[in-house]
Design a protein around this nucleic acid. Structure first.
Lengths: 340, 340
DNA sequence: CTGTTAGCGCGTTCAC
DNA sequence: GTGAACGCGCTAACAG
């Protein structure tokens, strides 16, 4: 394995100083085009690439973006990661991820990324202790929140309009004649959980439908919560006509419980989800849901982040709100014959 | 934002030289325990962590493992990534990923990781031009292939016994009375595609069942291939009793086509998949399949890789073969009443 | 436009 | 067991 070349070697071969090589490699304008061409030909002839470690050390920039998620194997985050990656590569950055599951204490996950010397961070995880974020903000560390907000703190973020997403789904259900609509969603501690519930509330209010506590279940954003919540609804005297699941995972649990109880969808009861993850699309699931456009979320988040990093001014003034996209499938059926 | 401390600052505060601090931080034994304690107390008091960029530069080790996949949002790879991450963090390494989708030319994806200065690579992607791998092997670059092999080249790899997995599924089908079994799988250019097909062939041969060309479809490992292949089978004079899908994605397409044609599973036709991805578990899919244990694959791959990196001897002698795990669900039903 | 010089913060080497 | 001097390959600052 032949020894790795340095810019000095290239400089010698091209008959220039190593700084000229450095300038050429960094697209510095102050190099004559002939010199540039000569240097580049040597660079290409030897397939030279500058030592990334030296570069990072010297410039104090790693060109790495840290992605903090609760679990990279969750399809929502994985798609987010894809969007981030695409954009990052455009700017010649790389993505390093860390799942909070993979280190004992959640907070350690953040430290892992920080210790690695990332230039900026995307927080897609919602489980993180906020005081850590506050500290980063105080140090004006480049930072973008994705799929969550931090009430009371200015911080760049990219979110989906969760409230609107909920309202879109509710409107869709109303339009089909459904009135008795129950909801199963995640905790109001999370901005996503809170806002989707708000959308549900405000839609009912506008429609003049009383809000029934019996029709509201809050738990985790998982299948089990969907299953248990649905069991509860099924046993109600006045069973809901439709169930609004706070995300697709919950919707999975809803379908489980409904199938088990011999109830058909949408015949006996309609279901909507949230997120438009892969399985919602499957023919046997066929879930009407709303897309948060996680791929774009990731791409936009990285774009903002890289600009903060490169302009060395992180003013935390970027607040992007994506419009949710209604995806109509078969889980709500067509118009109900008669309003009850 | 207060200036970042260096080991020299710590050294001053502790009244020692920066080298002593360096030794303490690197667990070098040649430091008296009192000195060590004093240094550590200062380190902890200031929450000091050595500059990772300087460290990487100086040691020429980034403590980053590159993960090359065809698409990180594919759940198979995402779970692999989780397993890798868990193990990497144990050793204080980080994971940087790159999807081949995200750069124009597939080969660029590898360069992206290499340019970033990763210490080693996990190739989980199957689409890569093999000549690139050969070159890395020649340079004895730390490298582990996961979920694929490279025929004709010694290279560390961790794979599932695909042939055995196929045989397990076939045996399961035979045991239930199925004899006319068709297969839809990926290209034989991939070791996975080839070996699963081999398992299919050898099982039939042993059972003394003739291999019918009509019952074999090879394409991509995707849903469309499953759909199209199934349409073909449905129209056959002698329709197969069971379809062996080369992976769960293909199985999805199989189910699509079957549902569309009004055929029930397993009533009219049985289906098995491969991979045990999340959706296979869903009640409405309920696919009997085989797990490749991708999480363990990732963890084992990283373990091997880190040992290669740290021992600076990459002999490429590690070949781990994981035993596939049969996951029985409902897509094959119970014993057939009569053999045809 | 180009070159010279001086670090960046660590680890390595060799003294003591 | 400890410390001083040096160098890793690059970029930044200034000089020409």
């Amino acid at each position: 394995m032949k020894k790795k070349l340095t810019i000095r070697d290239i400089a010698n071969m091209a008959g220039v100083s190593h700084m000229t090589v450095s300038r050429v490699l960094n697209d510095d304008s102050r190099v004559s085009s002939e010199t540039r061409a000569r240097v580049l030909s040597v660079v290409r002839a030897h397939n030279f690439t500058p030592n990334p470690k030296a570069r990072a050390f010297s410039s104090n920039k790693s060109r790495i973006i840290g992605l903090l998620v609760s679990d990279i194997s969750n399809p929502f985050y994985a798609e987010l990661a894809r969007g981030m990656e695409e954009k990052a590569h455009e700017y010649d950055y790389n993505i390093m991820f860390c799942s909070e599951l993979s280190v004992d204490k959640e907070q350690e996950a953040l430290n892992f990324l920080l210790k690695a010397g990332v230039d900026g961070l995307v927080f897609a995880s919602v489980r993180l202790n906020d005081s850590r974020i506050e500290r980063l903000i105080k140090e004006s560390f480049p930072l973008v929140l994705v799929n969550r907000e931090l009430p009371g703190h200015a911080c760049d973020h990219v979110v989906c309009n969760n409230r609107k997403g909920a309202r879109i789904l509710m409107k869709h259900l109303f339009g089909l004649g459904y009135q008795r609509i129950a909801i199963i969603t995640g905790s109001s501690d999370l901005s996503t959980g809170l806002q989707r519930l708000e959308g549900y509330h405000s839609s009912l209010r506008e429609k003049g439908i009383a809000i029934k506590a019996d029709y509201i279940v809050q738990g985790a954003f998982d299948r089990e919560t969907g299953y248990n919540g649905t069991r509860r609804f099924i046993n109600l005297d006045e069973r809901p006509q439709a169930i609004f699941a706070g995300n697709d995972y919950i919707a999975m649990g809803v379908l489980d419980a409904l199938d088990e109880a011999g109830l058909t969808v949408p015949g006996d009861i309609a279901v909507v989800g949230f997120d438009n993850t892969h399985f919602a699309a499957h023919r046997r699931i066929n879930l009407t849901t709303v897309s948060q456009r996680q791929y774009e979320m990731g791409a936009i988040g990285v774009d903002i982040l890289i600009h903060s990093i490169e302009q060395a001014k992180t003013d935390y003034q970027h607040h992007v709100v994506l419009e949710p996209l209604l995806i109509i499938r078969e889980s709500c059926g067509h118009r109900l014959q008669a309003a009850h």
